[in-house]
Amino acid sequence: MNTPEENEVLIAAVTSAYRARDVDGKLRIHPNWHDLDDEGRREAFDASFQVRRLESALDDDGENSTIKAVIARIHAGR
């Protein structure tokens, strides 16, 4: 059972759009996502939605970090 402070840090980590890749090139689950319970994962989902909306609004082209990460993967040949 995580403390609220621990949960806050884990949720902040999961809101990142950075995901490592495995040897087959498939996106890995964020390691801190495993450390959250169901309620924490739901909070992380909502926080991620909020963060992407903020990122889009702050970007001149309206593109958030998920969109930029996907475009980077496309340019890198996935």
């Binding site: 759009a17 739901r42 991620s48």
Partner: peptide, 8 residues
């Protein structure tokens, strides 16, 4: 949300 890492 509780069963998959939605970002991935």
């Amino acid at each position: 949300a509780a069963s998959v890492d939605a970002e991935a």
